[in-house]
Simulated scan of single mutants.
Amino acid sequence: MTDPGPEIAQRMLALRAHFAHHPVYEQLEGQFERLLSNRRVEVDKGEVREARAIALIGASGSGKSTAIDRLLTKTSGLILPQEGQDHCDVVSLMVPSPATLKSVGRSILEALGRPLRRERTTDAIWELVRGFLKERKVLFLHLDEAQDIARHQTPKEMQSVINTLKSLMQSRSWPVGLILSGMPGLKDLLNYDPQLARRVFPLELPRLSPLGDIGEVRAVVGFYSAEVGIPWEPEATAADVAARLIHAADREFGLLIEMTIDGLEEALHSGASSLSVEHFAAAFSRRSGCIAGLNPFIADEYERIDVRKLLGREGEE
């Protein structure tokens, strides 16, 4: 008998390649394309104007990293860093942890292909950053997990961070736009200085509503199930499963997509002819290691379950 595992794995890989569009992504895409067009025209005309920033904020599992990756890989004509290539439109990196101005500067230099070969002061590192951003004609710098830049900083250090970010956008020789993505703590950084805040276009990925987003969730699950040729279960139970799925994903859109795909994978492996709540329950159990009583697809009072907790057992705090 042929092992169906490899075929199912290929179908899941194709399924995960699909991108579920949502309103915040459309706003992100539109704002970035506008800023990109402005910067390209300014460069072509030899004009130096202050750049702007976009901030995408969302909790863990909200889908912000997927959204940024989609934006940078699918924007038409966008030049990304490649070995042996002098010019790139965007440089993207994750902020190192623990983050200091010096460590962030070093990471940017590495992303630019210009790693430090000897120790330098923070000011000297950022002077190099500005110089190499201009040399490579970088239009935008993306910092992921940007909230870490502001973590555990003294007021003086925080102001230095703010001033450094503003200096990139305000450079008189080569202004660079910023794309900042991160957890809700990023708001503290953005709101620390009004001069920084007014230069930022903020976008936040909202949490799903167990009431208002039922229809959207049903449509999303229906789309993914249709992609693999497995119909969803009867109309009478779809709303209840959608509500449970929203809670199981802790109301985060990105997690909900992951759990939908996990449920479909369970259905394929079981040879089922339709996607049912049992498949979501099995996928959640596999994911969390919880007992049945703490599985939001099985329990009666599922809203009380802490779905982020692994290996949940009755009576545990």
Results as ranks from 00 to 15, higher is better:
Gly131Ile: 04
Thr100Asp: 14
Ser97Cys: 08
Asp144Pro: 02
Asp123Pro: 05
Thr121Arg: 11
Asp123Glu: 14
Met94Asp: 11
Arg117Phe: 05
Glu119Tyr: 00
Glu119Ser: 12
Arg120Val: 00
Glu145Thr: 06
Asp144Trp: 06
Pro115Asp: 11
Arg114Ser: 05
Thr122Trp: 08
Arg118Met: 06
Glu135His: 09
Arg106Tyr: 12
Met94Ser: 14
Pro115Ala: 06
Leu143Gly: 06
Leu116Ala: 07
Ile108Ala: 05
Gly131Asp: 05
Gly113Ser: 06
Val95Lys: 00
Arg136Pro: 01
Arg136Ala: 08
Trp126Val: 11
Lys134Ala: 07
Ser103His: 07
Glu110Phe: 13
Glu119Thr: 12
Lys102Trp: 11
Leu143Gln: 02
Ala99Asn: 10
Leu139Asn: 00
Asp144Met: 10
Ala146Arg: 01
Glu110Ile: 15
Asp123Ala: 13
Ala124Ile: 05
Met94Tyr: 07
Ser97Asp: 12
Leu133Ile: 03
Leu112Tyr: 00
Glu127Phe: 09
Leu112Trp: 02
Asp144Gly: 13
Ser103Glu: 13
Ala146Pro: 00
Arg118Asp: 04
Ala124Ser: 15
Ser103Val: 08
Leu141Lys: 07
Arg114Lys: 14
Asp148Gln: 09
Leu139Arg: 00
Arg114Met: 10
Leu143Ile: 09
Gln147Tyr: 06
Arg117Cys: 01
Arg117Glu: 10
Val129Ile: 10
Leu143Asn: 01
Phe132Ala: 03
Met94Glu: 11
Ala111Arg: 02
Gly113Val: 03
Pro115Phe: 11
Lys137Glu: 13
Ala111Phe: 03
Thr121Tyr: 01
Lys102Ser: 15
Arg130Phe: 01
Gly105Arg: 04
Gln147Cys: 08
Arg117Asp: 04
Leu128Ile: 09
Glu127Asp: 15
Glu135Ser: 08
Val129Trp: 03
Gly105Cys: 11
Gln147Asp: 04
Leu109Phe: 09
Ile149Lys: 05
Lys137Cys: 01
Ser107Gly: 13
Ala124Thr: 15
Ala111Tyr: 04
Ala124Asn: 13
His142Val: 09
Leu116Ile: 08
Val104Ala: 09
Thr121Met: 03
Ile125Pro: 06
Glu135Ile: 04
Arg106Leu: 15
Gly131Asn: 08
Lys137His: 08
Trp126Glu: 08
Lys134Phe: 02
Ser97Met: 11
Leu112Arg: 02
Arg136Leu: 06
Leu141Gly: 01
Lys137Leu: 06
Leu143Cys: 09
Asp123Gly: 05
Ser97Asn: 12
Arg130Ala: 07
Glu145Leu: 07
Val129Leu: 04
Ile108Glu: 00
Val95Pro: 03
Ile149Gln: 04
Phe140Lys: 00
Arg118Lys: 12
Ala99Glu: 07
Val104Ile: 14
Arg136Glu: 06
Lys134Thr: 02
Arg106Lys: 15
Leu109Glu: 12
Gln147Met: 01
His142Asn: 09
Ile125Ala: 07
Leu116Gln: 07
Gly105Tyr: 05
Arg120Asn: 05
Ala124Arg: 10
Leu143Pro: 03
Ser107Lys: 15
Thr122Ile: 08
Pro96Asn: 11
Phe140Val: 01
Val129Arg: 03
Glu119Cys: 01
Leu139Thr: 01
Gln147His: 13
Phe140Thr: 00
Arg130Gly: 14
Thr100Pro: 14
Ser103Leu: 12
Pro96Leu: 11
Pro96Asp: 12
Thr100Leu: 15
Ala124Gly: 09
Arg114Asn: 08
Asp123Val: 14
